[in-house]
């Protein structure tokens, strides 16, 4: 009973690993489904969501908060899936989007650049130079995205619980190692973990409801008591309070709602 996120570069065999783990453990395997759900629920074209989660923010994006809003929608859709438990997610940024859930086994699957180039050449029928250039560009885009939005380097191994190098170790070995690791104590879904998942789900739902209109807000929930932190003047905080009441009125599982004005958003908020 756990959640596994697989982070991967293009042609790193991460997708194959994820699908095999899901089949081996009898888990649900999700990736693009999350974007489709978010697109359907929030009426945003899927392409815009893909760009929000894939492309590094441009200068203009940094002044608008649409990218942040799209990420809030994607996170909400992802949390709805993982709340069911027993899930393998191999879409983009799972390890960052599910940061607030404790029993997530965060895995990165890597492969040598030469192997990746060969795979891309074969599939796309392009030259070695073109394949290499595309892969490096894609990797750089990922790095910039995580750096701009989360202030971390996607290549930093400490962001993950396990990094498996598929080279000497095969896809089947990686499947065995990850399936074995996820059975270990820290990744079991306990009663406390389930409560945290419920709280994280509430926070993500409210954040998605606020994200379209407000960018300087952070949300967290403790046992159904939802706390909203807003950074702005009194008028701004009043507007956030009104909207938060409206959104939580339609949500189930919320006991209390508090809205606080702050100078700096706390680190543990969504």
């Amino acid at each position: 009973m756990a959640i596994i996120t697989i982070s991967r570069g293009s042609y790193s065999k991460g997708k194959e690993v994820a699908e095999k783990i899901a089949s081996h453990l009898g888990y649900q395997c999700i990736s693009r489904d999350v974007l489709l759900d978010a697109s359907e629920r929030f009426h945003i074209p899927e392409m815009k969501l893909v760009r929000a989660i894939h492309d590094a923010p441009s200068i203009l994006d940094r002044f608008s908060h649409s990218q942040q809003a799209f990420i809030a929608y994607i996170r909400y859709a992802l949390v709805q899936h993982v709340k069911e438990d027993n899930v393998v997610y191999h879409g983009l940024a799972g390890h960052l989007l599910l940061k607030g859930i404790p029993n997530v086994l965060k895995v990165r699957v890597i492969a040598d650049l030469a192997d990746r180039v060969r795979a891309e050449m074969k599939r796309e029928k392009i030259s070695e130079k073109a394949a290499r250039s595309l892969l490096l560009k894609d990797d750089e885009e990922r790095r910039k995205w995580t750096q701009a939005l989360y202030g971390v380097d996607s290549r930093d191994s400490s962001l993950y619980d396990l990094v498996v190098h598929v080279h000497k170790l095969t896809v089947d070995d990686a499947v065995e190692i990850i399936s074995d690791a996820v059975q270990r104590t820290p990744f079991k879904t306990t009663k406390q973990v389930r409560q945290k998942m419920e709280d994280y789900g509430l926070a993500c739902q409210l954040k998605a409801g606020l994200a379209h209109s407000f960018d300087n807000v952070g949300v967290k929930s403790e046992y159904g008591n939802v706390l909203v932190y807003a950074r702005g003047n009194e008028h701004y905080v009043q507007r956030v309070r009104k909207k938060a009441r409206e959104v939580t009125g339609k949500m189930s599982g919320v006991n209390e709602l508090e809205v606080h004005a702050v100078q700096k958003l706390p680190l543990d908020v969504v």
């Binding site: 080279h167 190692i177 074995d180």
Partner: peptide, 25 residues
């Protein structure tokens, strides 16, 4: 990380669990 077959972070995994994963591998 590509210098290694595997990188294990001890943020959630306990050292003895990490040792078991290595022994298995």
């Amino acid at each position: 990380p590509s210098l290694y077959d595997m990188v294990i972070s001890l943020s959630q995994i306990e050292p003895d669990e990490a040792a078991k994963v290595i022994v298995e591998t």
